[in-house]
Structures are given as structure tokens and as C-alpha cells.
């Protein structure tokens, strides 16, 4: 078991290195020169050359990469191109709090409810409850995020008359419930977005286990339905469920650009838009690495959870 976990860790590390190469080369291939961007079009060639030397841009590409990757590992993401006085780390520090609050709150509220709903749907396949839930999640899983967001705005703001269509004000000094109220609409929207996936997948995972012979055996032993699901089926479905949860958590950190823009609050994901608009490669590199790291760590956690939950690996012969 431990060797398998080590292997996964190794693969994770390889993925991070591969991504760093892709990001580094990718931003190098992009048109535009860092020194030029930083100094603007009016800069003299001498000034640009001087800055290039200072930034190490005249070194061979592999040295640049090693330097950059070394800096990244030590937490130095460099300086913003669009605003040389600003460290990328401080740009990110300004944003990560909102992202963290929204994603953690969404995960705490959304994940358990969705999993419970999905497992319940699997307990009564074909029932009215199951059909309504399945239909809703089939619908929501395919709908664009801004459709779901619009729906939330229509329901909460227009029909019920609570809250604002945009997130306004600061989070400072707010307690948990005030924070939830503050981010009510994005949290509600994201809950629906991840719920549609989680319900579908947890239902499918449990139903998949439910078709195995040992479940039939449990039925033939006269085991009550509740115990069949909770004791016999659920534990064997952990692997795929944890995997989907991890994918959705990664999405909450890295993939919510549209939601952040829609509700107008400043999160990590929409920082990438700023980076793109100002052609700030250094910012894009830093964010890319952070997103990739988040994804890799979450997927690793899911893999390890699946390994640990497998009795074959936990208790070898």
C-alpha cells in the first residue's frame, strides 16, 4: 500500500514539473517581450536590453527555467509586469481570501447535501424522488454557469427581494453567517453547479456497486435496504465518489472565473483575466502553477483515499 501511495506522489510530482515546463515554454512562445511590456512601447532599445539582462532574459532558456522554477518553489513568484512595484504574491494574497471563503463555504454546504441526495436517489432508483432529482441534475449539469447564476438572481433578488445581484462591500469583521449572507448568491450558484455533478456521480457510483453479486447476496440474506446501502454498498463506492469530490473542489478554486465576474467579486480565478488583459506573463505563470498545484494535491488526496479505502491494499495477503 505504501509503495502505491509513494508511486502516486511521484506521479503527482512529475505532473507538477511537466506543467511547469508547459507553462514556462508556453509563456515564452507567446508574442511579446517581458522587458518591452514592462517598459512600454516608447522605451529605448538600450533600456529594454538593460532590463532584459536584469531579468535574466538573455540567459539560455533552460537556465531561465531553472531559475524561475527555483524561485517558484521558494515562494518567489516574481514581480508583476504591468506594475513592476507589485509582487505577484501580494496580488494573489489580495485575492485568495475571497476564493477561500467561497470555496470552503460551498464545499461545506454543498458536498454533504449533494452526496446525501445522490445516495438517497440510489436507494430508491426509479422512484419519483429519484426521477425528479436525476432530471434536475441532468438539466443543471449541462446549463452554463451564468444561466444558473441568472436563475439565482431571478429567484433571490427579483422574486424574493433579498440580497443584491452583485457582491458588494468588504468581508472584514464578518462572522460565519454574515459571510454566508455576503456571498449568498455565488455560494448558492456554485452549490447548484457542483451538486448537479456530485448527485449524478454519487448516484451512479452507488448504483454500480448495487449491481454486484455481493449486494444480491445481502438482499437474499434479508438485510434491510438501509443497511445494504450504508454498510455494504457505500464503502465500496468511496473511490469514485472521492474522485468526483476532488475534481469539484479543484473547480471551486480554479474554475470559477465566470461566477466571479458575474457577481463582481475579486477572486483568484478572475485574476487570470487581469493577467491576460495586461499581458502579465509573470502573473499568468504564477497562477497557472498555483492552479495546477491545487489540482494535483486534490487528486492525490482522492487517489490516496481510494487506496486506503480498498481492503485489498490495506490488508495484503
Amino acid at each position: 500500500m505504501y509503495s502505491m501511495i509513494l508511486k502516486r506522489l511521484g506521479i503527482g510530482a512529475i505532473t507538477v514539473v511537466a506543467v511547469s515546463v508547459i507553462i514556462f515554454l508556453g509563456t515564452k512562445v507567446l508574442p511579446g517581450d517581458a522587458a518591452q511590456i514592462r517598459l512600454g512601447q516608447s522605451a529605448t532599445p538600450e533600456a529594454v536590453a538593460a532590463l532584459r539582462a536584469e531579468l535574466g532574459l538573455d540567459l539560455p532558456i533552460y537556465q531561465q527555467y531553472l531559475q524561475w522554477f527555483g524561485n517558484f518553489i521558494t515562494g518567489n513568484l516574481g514581480q508583476s509586469l504591468s506594475n513592476p512595484d507589485v509582487q505577484i504574491t501580494s496580488l494573489i494574497a489580495d485575492r485568495y481570501e475571497n476564493t477561500l471563503i467561497v470555496s470552503v463555504l460551498t464545499a461545506i454546504i454543498g458536498v454533504p447535501i449533494s452526496l446525501a441526495l445522490g445516495v438517497m436517489a440510489a436507494m430508491f432508483p426509479g422512484s419519483i424522488y429519484d426521477r425528479i432529482l436525476t432530471f434536475t441534475s441532468v438539466t443543471l449539469v449541462a446549463a452554463p454557469e451564468f444561466f444558473t447564476a441568472t436563475l439565482m438572481v431571478l429567484i433571490f433578488v427579483f422574486a424574493l427581494g433579498i440580497g443584491n445581484a452583485v457582491v458588494v462591500g468588504s468581508t472584514e469583521g464578518k462572522d460565519l453567517f454574515q459571510l454566508i449572507a455576503h456571498f449568498a448568491l455565488p455560494i448558492a450558484t456554485l452549490c447548484f453547479v457542483i451538486a448537479s455533478q456530485l448527485i449524478r456521480m454519487s448516484r451512479a457510483a452507488v448504483l454500480n456497486v448495487m449491481s454486484s453479486p455481493y449486494i444480491e447476496m445481502a438482499i437474499l440474506k434479508g438485510v434491510p435496504r438501509k443497511r445494504i446501502i450504508l454498510r455494504h454498498a457505500l464503502f465500496n463506492a468511496i473511490g469514485p465518489i472521492v474522485n468526483v469530490v476532488a475534481l469539484n473542489l479543484a473547480y471551486l478554486v480554479t474554475g470559477v472565473i465566470v461566477i466571479e465576474i458575474y457577481f463582481g467579486y475579486q477572486g483568484l480565478a478572475s485574476l487570470i483575466v487581469q493577467g491576460v488583459q495586461t499581458r502579465d506573463f509573470v502573473l499568468i505563470q504564477g497562477l497557472g502553477m498555483i492552479f495546477c498545484g491545487t489540482y494535483v494535491v486534490l487528486m492525490l488526496a482522492a487517489d490516496i483515499a481510494a487506496i486506503v479505502s480498498n481492503p485489498r491494499l490495506r490488508h495484503p495477503k
Partner: peptide, 23 residues
């Protein structure tokens, strides 16, 4: 339910598939 497993019990062809792997 009161009959199954108590009055009548079933043995399947493949025990490997019939035992729950995680219990």
C-alpha cells in the same frame, strides 16, 4: 425479509464475487 437468510439460505456459484470485499 424474515424468511431470507433464516428459513432459506443461498449459496452462489462464485464465492469470490458474493463476499463483500470490504467487510
Amino acid at each position: 425479509r424474515p424468511f431470507r437468510g433464516e428459513k432459506v439460505a443461498y449459496l452462489a456459484q462464485s464465492a469470490a464475487a458474493t463476499f463483500n470485499p470490504s467487510i
